[in-house]
Every structure is written in C-alpha cells, then in structure tokens.
Amino acid sequence: MKQQITKLVPQLRRFAFALTGSADDADDLLQNTIERLLRQAPDAQDEDLTKWAFRVCKNLWIDEYRSRKVRSQAAANPELSANQAVDGERAMQGEIALQQVNSAMAQLPDEQRSIISLIALEGLSYKEAAAALELPIGTVMSRLARARVALSEFLKNSQEEANA
C-alpha cells in the first residue's frame, strides 16, 4: 500500500498545490491525505486508489483548508524564503505568477477548481476525472470549459491591468 501511495505522491502534491495555492498548505494537505489513505484505503487496484486518493484530497481541502484559510492569507502576502532569495528577480516573477493564478483560481467554485486541476495539471482524462470526483462526464466537460473561460478572462484582465 505504501508503495502504491508513494507512486501517487507527486501527482497528489501538485493537485494539493493547485487547490490550496500555497506550497506549505499543499504539503499539510498532502500529509493529511496520506494519513487518511494509510488508515482507510481499501485493498484496491492502482486505478481505484488513484481516484480514491484524489477524492480524499479534494474532500479534505473542502472540509478543512477552505474553512481555515490561515496560510492562504500568507500566500497573498508572500515573503521571500531563503531558497527563493538565491535568484531574487526570477523568484519574484514566480511569486507574481503564482499570485495571479491563485487569484484567478480563487474565483472558481470548488468543483471547477478541482476539475481543472485534475485535467489541465495532472492530465487525467474526462472519464478519470469524472470517476475521481463522482460526477457525470458531461458535467466535467461543461464545468471544465467554464473554468477555462473564467480563468482566461481573469488572467487577461489582470495582464491588461498590469500593463496599464
């Protein structure tokens, strides 16, 4: 089981980052997800475990992290960490991009944020994402499109504001 979960860690971690918008929160969420998986995961095939893992991660995010929003406040006011200070300018650019995308993602309903993270970031098929989130494929397809359009508008506007 640990071995199966280990294989999923990079995917789950990026998913958690896309949901929380903060690397520290993402690792907290990842840790709680793994704890839950180790405690509760059924003896499942890899495919089932993947769906289950994403679902657990998303539910924990909705239950705990969305309500707490403690660290995400910090993400809105980023301070350079020691690592990032190595290349200040580039790190700043990375932070600005993160803030921009976080602000855009924050506009989305939870379900849309989960869907676009699974598909655009993790490369899941619509069928896989539908199974992970327990939604019909048609719903995944339409919500994904709405999420992409909303994000595109938001990013375009913030880019225009930045250039103004």
């Binding site: 990079p10 971690r13 990026r14 980052f17 896309a18 690397a23 993402a26 990375g94 991009a97 993160l98 921009q100 995308v101 976080n102 855009a104 993602m105 676009i116 993270s117 655009a120 970031l121 992409r148 359009v149 994000l151 595109s152 990013l155 375009k156």
Partner: peptide, 17 residues
C-alpha cells in the same frame, strides 16, 4: 487563450515538484 490557461496552471503549480 484557453491553452494559455492550462499553460499558466501547469507552469505555476508544477513548481512544487
């Protein structure tokens, strides 16, 4: 435009790797 959305998401959130 829609492709850029995916690129932005991947670019930003893959950094945690």
């Amino acid at each position: 435009e829609l492709t850029m959305v995916d690129e932005s998401i991947r670019g930003v959130y893959s950094e945690i790797d």
